[in-house]
Nucleic acid binder design. Structure first.
Length: 418
RNA sequence: GCGGGUGUAGCUCAGUUGGUUAGAGCAUCGGUUUGUGGUACCGAGGGUCGCGGGUUCGAGUCCCGUCACUCGCCCCA
């Protein structure tokens, strides 16, 4: 391979420019600003970890671990993996940093994640997530706060109308084990209706069958016993407190009994904000309670709950951005005024204005150019103005213009710029 | 990983049953004589028709492969 094999970006990766980047930044900045009000501080963990960190936390059977990780061997012979999600890294940092002494802890994170999936709209191989984790609070108050934070962020991004919240309870371990038995028994009786995949899942991950899209599976599951009917008293109270808490805050949500998580350490609250505007990738923000995770990773037993959101998906839902930073255009009438124009441009930029200069063509072209860059104002410099140490300042929206002395320009613009 | 669709100028697309120098709109650049824009008119540049092979006297048009995008499945944010 002499140079690069192709000038295309690697499959599933994308260049982001100008407005795309602005959207990303807007989402991240809004999310973090609000998260701070809720007491969250930012954590930045490495983009790659020892493979074990993900393999152990996500479970050996999950698709992410079995076929979607970017795993490679370092020169030292260690197996490392580009992070496919954010929670594992935060949990690892929590343990290796000895932070268990300081709970409760509230983390906000953002950054790229990597998954070797088939690309689709709203699904790329390198993608951006923002997320929060709240560690060390086992009461439903944590669940309420974390969901309220998500809702707050989404509404600040003007997405309240395009997104709906679904919620479910996976109960505590006792409830889950009990329900799992009931469900497996029920589905085993109807095995012939199930898809091949679901028959495989029956043994290792039966809850997943509940949200299958296969028609046969759907039919088989239609009258299946509901998880919500098999919660023990503790779990039911917990779930009710969460729901009441959300209702009290005016946060609408729909209980979806088919909303499940595959992994063992998930329990109690699971929730998703979804949209129907993005085709098959409708989940925009999702999370849940994972009280078993830290302990499973080798840390002290620590309750935890959190969520993650896909920045690209949010960006696609965002309304059109307003034009940022309309510039002032400086227009020398001919090359003879270029030197003076440069001095003025520099002075205005140092004074804090956004300034562009039209470099070539006759005046008409230069004015056209000023329009194209959405300039608010044109500062016209011709032979006459230069002789008088003045400039013609034209308001491009209103069409009116004044002659202003060059040394008064900054003051004049301070008064007239929006 | 599986199945369907698409791939022609920077962008959106047209391209007739395979047949002469591959088109349009928008965008870009230049001009419409002397210092004023968002209109109008004239003109120019820009494409080895995703890439590679094959069929044919001849392929953007047919066949095969490949890559990318896209929709659904899977998985998930």
């Amino acid at each position: 391979m002499p140079f690069v094999s192709s000038l295309q970006p690697v499959r599933g990766t994308h260049d982001l420019l100008f407005d795309d980047v602005r959207r990303h930044r807007l989402i991240e900045a809004t999310a973090f600003e609000i998260a701070q009000r809720y007491g969250y501080g930012e954590i930045a963990t490495p983009v790659f970890e020892f493979t074990d960190v993900f393999a152990r936390t996500l479970g050996d059977t999950s698709d992410i671990v079995t076929k979607e990780m970017y795993t490679f061997e370092t020169k030292g012979g260690e197996s490392v993996t580009l992070r496919p999600e954010g929670t594992a890294g935060v949990a690892r940092a929590f343990i290796s940093g000895g932070l268990a002494q300081q709970t409760p802890l509230k983390f906000f994170y953002r950054g790229p994640m990597f998954r070797h999936e088939r690309p689709q709209k709203g699904r790329q191989r390198q993608f951006q997530q923002i997320g929060v984790e709240l560690l060390g609070v086992a009461t439903p108050q944590a669940d309420i706060e974390v969901i309220a934070l998500a809702d707050h962020i989404l509404s600040s991004l003007a997405l309240t109308g395009t997104v709906t919240l679904e919620i479910n309870s996976l109960g505590d371990t006792e409830s889950r084990v009990a329900y799992r038995d009931v469900l497996v028994k029920y589905l085993t009786d109807r095995q012939d209706m199930l898809s091949q995949e679901s028959r495989d899942r029956l043994g290792r991950n039966p809850l997943r069958i509940l949200d299958s899209k296969d028609p046969g599976d759907k039919e088989a599951v239609k009258d299946a016993p509901l998880f919500t009917d098999h919660l023990n008293v503790t779990s039911r109270d917990f779930f009710k407190t969460v729901q009441d808490g959300l209702a009290a805050l005016g946060i609408a949500c729909k209980v979806n009994p088919a909303l499940v998580r595959g992994l063992d350490y998930y329990g109690h609250t699971a929730f998703e904000f979804t949209t129907d505007a993005l085709g098959a990738q409708g989940t925009v923000l999702a999370g849940g309670r994972y009280d078993g995770l830290i302990k499973q990773m080798g840390g002290p037993p620590t309750a935890g709950i959190g969520w993650a959101a896909g920045v690209e998906r949010l960006a696609m839902l965002l309304p059109e951005l307003e034009i940022a930073n309309r510039p002032i255009a400086v227009i020398p009438v001919s090359d003879a005024e270029a030197a003076t124009a440069n001095i003025i441009v520099s002075a205005l930029r140092h004074a804090g204005f956004t300034v562009d200069i039209a470099f070539s063509g006759n005046m008409g072209k230069r004015m056209t150019r000023a329009n194209k860059i959405k300039a608010t104002t044109a500062i016209i410099l011709g032979g006459d103005e230069v002789l008088e140490n003045a400039a013609t300042v034209r308001n491009l929206d209103a069409g009116a213009q004044d002659k202003v002395r060059q040394k008064d320009l900054v003051e004049y613009l301070r008064k007239t710029q929006p």
